[in-house]
Structure formats: C-alpha cells, structure tokens
Amino acid sequence: MSSGAAAPLAASVDRQRGPWTFVRHALVIVEIEARKLRKDPTELLMRAIQPALWLLVFGQAFSRFRVLPDPSVSYRAFLTPGILAQSITFVSIFYGISIIWEMDMGLLQKIITTPIRLSAFVAGKMCAASLRSLSQAVIILLLALVVGIRLHVSLLSLLGVLFIVLLGGAFFSGLSMVIATLVRTRERMMGIGQLITMPLFFSSNALYPMSIMPGWLKVMATVNPMSYLVDGLRGLLILEPGAHYGLDVGVLGCAIALMWGLNVLLYPRILSA
C-alpha cells in the first residue's frame, strides 16, 4: 500500500465477495456451457447412439444368460441403469478434451483474469459438464420407455435419478479435468479416456450383479466409483432391494470434493503455461 495510487476502486469490487458470489460465478460458467449446448446439440445426440445399441442389441443377447438371481426382473431392465451410468461416465471422461481445447485457445486464461475465484471456476466447469450427463440421461430413459423396458417411474424416483446423474457427471468430469492437467494434449487425453472407460465399465456392477462376481472382481467393483452410480440408479429405477443410497451419495460426494480440491490445486500450474 505504498504508492499514492490507492484511488477509488471499480464499483463492482464490493460485490465480488462472499459465498453468494461463488455461486453466481459458478453459474456463469454453467451458463456459457448451456448456451453452447443449446446451439449445437448434435454431439449429444451422437453420443447417445452407442448406449442405445447396448440397450437394444446387447440387452437382448445377454438376457439369455440368465445371470440374475431374481427371475422377476428382466435383464434389460436390470441393464438400463448400468448403461445409463456407462454413458454418463463416457461423456464425462472426455470432458477434459474440451478443457484442453479452451486452454490452448486462451479462453480459460481470460476467464481466470476476471474476479472469479479458481474454486468457483472449477466448480462451475464440473457442474457444466454434468449438464451433458443430464441430457444423456433424458435421452436414454426416453428410449428405454419407448422400447418397452419396464422401469419404475415416479416423480420422486426421477428426481432421484437426475440427482445421482448430476453427481456421477460431476465426479467423472472432475476426474477428466484432473487428467487433462496431467496429460495436457488432446491426443493423450483421448488415449487415456479410451484406456480407462472399458475397464471401468466391466469392473463395475453395470452388466452383472455383484452377487455372481468372483471375489477379485468384487473387490474391484467395490473400489470402482461407477458401481455406486449404478447402485443408486438401479435402486431407483427397478426398485432393486438392498440399494445403498446413503453410501452411494456419500461416496460420490466425497469423490467430487476430492476432484474439486485437486483441480483447484492443479489448474494454476497449467493455466499459466
């Protein structure tokens, strides 16, 4: 405070503090994403094709194996929450590519020099990415209903599903943002994404119930965050008994907090490059 230049500050400064500002700033980041998605939804439609194939083709084929202990539940209904979780994971895990793109362009650098806090920026980005997951969820659920898969649908269960979808989307996109700061190029990000999506999917309870898994797979499924996503969705959509909502939300919530913290630590390093 040595110079004589401590003249009046810009009028807006006093509005740039406090928790409400954090939320307001994070919502602006979400708004940017939403405006872009609305203009060009083709990407989201394209991304829904693969899960649709899983549901229609593989669901039919796999149902012959009769892996479900409970014969009253159709395999396709059992599979739907798994496919939903899969598509959330896949959309989110490649989110880092667009982050790297925006960083290479200089967009993020300019945003960061406005009075937004980095923590609000990261939270905004993670929420923005889960918007994409939300749109996937809507498409897949509609599709499932159209082809006659019997799901439990009530206002409450739908709200619950959307909430868990948001959690899943925020976690996996946060993970993707962490990876993006480490690999730094779109090509490598693409490679890593492809490398981890399939193992994540097959080592979760998306395709088969935990109860029929061999011991080693059970261990993997237990440490796989995707399993918690599937568990919550399955409980809500096919009323599977023994879903652990509290655990699911708790695990995903902690995982989100961890990703958020890591990103706040990691982003200054790469935004200045």
Binding site: L9, S12, M105, L107, Q109
Partner: peptide, 11 residues
C-alpha cells in the same frame, strides 16, 4: 477487478 487483459491467444 481493477484490470482488463487481452491475451496473446484467442480469448
């Protein structure tokens, strides 16, 4: 809040 910045890259 006191500064504006136009980076060398696209922003």
């Amino acid at each position: 809040s006191l500064i504006g910045y136009v980076p060398q890259m696209l922003s």
